[in-house]
Write a protein that binds this DNA or RNA. Sequence first.
DNA 1: ATGGTGGTCCAACCA
Length: 254
Amino acid sequence: MKIATWNVNSLRVRLPHVLEWLQAQQPDVLALQEIKMTDDQFPVEQFNECGYQAVWSGQKTYNGVAIVSKHPTQDVVTDFPGWQDDQRRILAATIDGVRIVNFYVPNGESVASDKYQYKLAWLKAAKHWLAAEFKQHDKMIVLGDFNIAPEDRDVHDPAAWQGQVLCSDAERAALTEIMALGFVDSLRLFEQEAGVFSWWDYRAAAFRRNMGMRIDLLLVSAALQARCCASYVDKQPRKLERPSDHAPVILELT
DNA sequence: ATGGTGGTCCAACCA
């Protein structure tokens, strides 16, 4: 089973890249973030033509998440119970007995901003909801754009980013609390060279200089850990004309 | 130190 996550920064613009990538890579599941479209605009027919079904939760202009899958999706959830939010950032579904939880975690803008407080509150709600989900699903993968670099080795210039949004202690602590429910960072199960990132700013030729961050993660529950056989970033789509600023990250299970 | 780019949608917000 091959599972991937990709922040596409507008599915309307990136659809050709996504369809080409699906055809080439043939993942069983692809979780998308920042589709930036309303539900009625979702190009489900074009995924169907490639042999995929999909579920999605969209909104106008911002955010929006989807799960594209070769196999049927069950028990779809789009919100934390009791958490009122117009921002579409959550999509969970069970596929082949695996609970897939797709998150587009708030960016947070800067540590002094209201958006940062929203991010921390959102992560707290996420932890509580995941704890409840865990009671019903031992085989879980929480994946998506976390907008948190877990450790300094996930940052091209840790000194410059120290204490900044995406790297601050409170964000990393919130991620640690989620991991402590019983998840491991799948990519770190495998030996990696230094400088493995999943996002590079469009500005300042950041991709060419590999000035990136690893903020797109696949967290796997203990019940799935023994099935993990590979996890890696595919930088190829980031090299295309008019790319997303994120690259897909992949997990392969036996 | 600033601004550098890109998407949405045409002024300004978000990343």
